[in-house]
Amino acid sequence: MDAFLLWFDEFWAVYSNLVLTLGINALLALSIWLTLACGVLALANAAFMGIGAYAGALATLNYDSPFALSIGVAMVAPSLVALAIGLPVLRLGGVYLAMATLGFGEVVRVVILNTESITGGALGLNGIPQYTQWWHVLLALVIVIFVLARLHRSKTGRAFEAIKVDETAASLMGVDLRANKLLAFVLGAAIAGLAGALNAHLTFFIGPQEYGFDRGVEILTMAILGGVTSIIGPIIGAVFLTLLPELLRGLADFRLIVNGFILVAVVLFLPNGLWDPARFRRWFGSGR
């Protein structure tokens, strides 16, 4: 027992940040899964993460607010922004919506860069207290999964699914397309803001480069790679995409090449993602 505790202490001292990052990335993947579940391809989650990170960090640094209050501010701020931009932007669809939300992400990055007196500009914010503990991330993940699971099984969740399958048919059945899309967009922004605040209070430092186009694509890749047919898929995709670079670290210069090949192989041979309940049913069904 003592040997195990000693091993665990050594493991946690080295890999604690990686383990907590797994949970934070899972929250980000769930944030975009929620909008995808409503048929909305919005790529603003990295920007919402950034807004949440800066709002929570500034509340802590400038106003010495309790960690719980900083988390609340980090969720409310991107939700209000999502509500403001969602009203006009969600009139668009498909690639036009994706382009509009990508443009919004660039606007957020430029605003952060040009408000040095508040955000620190290109130098970012440093010295953020490390309040995030393992149980904060675990509790946040459990609550988000519980809420999304209940939402998915509710009348609103069925409306999301109807919109995703066929907007015209859903509208004819009386589903309010605009209200449901806006709800998914705002809730996704709140979850992304929560992840941003937890990350900011884990890493001590945040900068605008962390919330750009690359981060937005990474969040989308986590959800698509894991599979968007259930809540479990994005979590598996986040774990896979977070651990893969660490597992390939020993390959040195070839790490990124092998990483790319693995991702391409998964997309080609598992088009519905790593977690596909329909595929599992076919496998087990064929064995009977």
Results as ranks from 00 to 15, higher is better:
residue 61 L to G: 02
residue 61 L to E: 00
residue 61 L to V: 06
residue 61 L to Q: 06
residue 62 N to M: 10
residue 62 N to R: 15
residue 62 N to K: 14
residue 62 N to Q: 14
residue 62 N to F: 12
residue 63 Y to M: 11
residue 64 D to H: 14
residue 64 D to P: 00
residue 65 S to I: 10
residue 66 P to D: 03
residue 66 P to T: 03
residue 66 P to F: 12
residue 66 P to C: 06
residue 66 P to S: 08
residue 67 F to Y: 15
residue 67 F to V: 04
residue 67 F to C: 03
residue 68 A to R: 04
residue 69 L to V: 15
residue 69 L to R: 00
residue 69 L to Q: 06
residue 70 S to M: 02
residue 70 S to T: 04
residue 70 S to Y: 05
residue 70 S to F: 06
residue 71 I to W: 07
residue 71 I to L: 15
residue 71 I to Y: 07
residue 71 I to N: 00
residue 72 G to Y: 08
residue 72 G to E: 01
residue 73 V to T: 07
residue 73 V to R: 04
residue 74 A to K: 01
residue 74 A to D: 03
residue 74 A to W: 12
residue 75 M to Q: 00
residue 75 M to F: 08
residue 75 M to L: 11
residue 76 V to G: 07
residue 77 A to V: 11
residue 77 A to R: 00
residue 78 P to G: 10
residue 78 P to E: 06
residue 78 P to N: 08
residue 79 S to W: 09
residue 79 S to L: 11
residue 80 L to W: 08
residue 81 V to T: 10
residue 81 V to D: 06
residue 81 V to F: 14
residue 82 A to Y: 11
residue 82 A to T: 07
residue 82 A to S: 12
residue 82 A to R: 08
residue 82 A to N: 08
residue 83 L to M: 10
residue 83 L to Q: 00
residue 84 A to S: 07
residue 85 I to V: 15
residue 85 I to H: 09
residue 86 G to C: 09
residue 86 G to L: 07
residue 89 V to D: 01
residue 89 V to T: 15
residue 89 V to Q: 09
residue 89 V to E: 05
residue 90 L to I: 08
residue 90 L to K: 05
residue 90 L to G: 08
residue 90 L to Q: 07
residue 91 R to L: 07
residue 91 R to F: 08
residue 92 L to K: 02
residue 92 L to Q: 03
residue 92 L to Y: 12
residue 92 L to C: 06
residue 92 L to I: 07
residue 93 G to L: 06
residue 94 G to S: 08
residue 94 G to K: 05
residue 94 G to T: 09
residue 94 G to Y: 13
residue 94 G to M: 07
residue 94 G to V: 10
residue 95 V to W: 09
residue 95 V to D: 15
residue 95 V to S: 10
residue 95 V to I: 15
